[in-house]
Design a protein around this nucleic acid. Sequence first.
DNA 1: GCTAATGATTGTGCCGATACAAGCTTCCTG
DNA 2: CAGGAAGCTTGTATCGGCACAATCATTAGC
Lengths: 142, 142
Amino acid sequence: MSEDAAVRAWLRMRSLVLDRHDRRREAADALGLSFVRIKALRRVAETPSTLSDLADALAVDRPYATVVVDELQKRGLVRREPHPGDRRCKVVSATEAGQEAAAVASAILGEPPPGVRALPEADLAELDRILGVLVQDPERAR
Amino acid sequence: MSEDAAVRAWLRMRSLVLDRHDRRREAADALGLSFVRIKALRRVAETPSTLSDLADALAVDRPYATVVVDELQKRGLVRREPHPGDRRCKVVSATEAGQEAAAVASAILGEPPPGVRALPEADLAELDRILGVLVQDPERAR
DNA sequence: GCTAATGATTGTGCCGATACAAGCTTCCTG
DNA sequence: CAGGAAGCTTGTATCGGCACAATCATTAGC
């Protein structure tokens, strides 16, 4: 029973994010950047990180992370800075322009489906709260 | 205020589906099929459809839908049948093997993150109910 | 100080994702 | 029936995604 609710809820969430309201293409068109690059940009705009960390966050291998950052850097959206304390690392962070671009992306990707805004106040609060629990969940165990 | 909750809830949902619990790769590996192909397979397994409809559902152009179906057919997962009533159309449906493969995919993709199952009964019910409203929402308007 | 781990980069290469153009069959409408 | 619309297929071509292997720079452990 609750088994079913869990699966059903999950499938619904997936459907919403992946099918009914997937605006990734839109964001990609708006910025002229591919999905991964946008994800990388948004990530470093929020928390500057080393190439390795970024690679992990994007779930790609390190060499590819380098390529992605190269591209972003070529466009002046991010910069590489030496890591204080470990000269092997480079810390990637967003430039001014990068922050702006990231904001544009977030505006597009963060815009919820109309139905969400149309929700009764109470439902919205509930939804938000429960999702908050879920994203926090130390389910680092994959 | 509720503005923020809507955006936040949406971002959380996205994060959950796209980052924290994205098992698409896993499904792809398990079946030896790419994302789009799996999506196509699951779709026709549930509701047989014409190539055009499928193309729309996948958000790809028709020629590509043909390619995707070709591949699935070559593997014996789907079959093309003449559309009764319109001989221009082919109706694509899953074979026995296709149904099984689709079930495997669904088992992987439908498995919710552990946190969902760990939710208090009441929260889970709420979540499910609210998401039900959202997916139903005639937000066909993109 | 030497050797092994860690991090970044470069070079190579393959495959999936698609779009676009063109052609064929079938259907519909005048 | 003629002409055009609708649906499928084939052919062509480009591009992004991304892994792998090898290389160089640093750091860390013995």
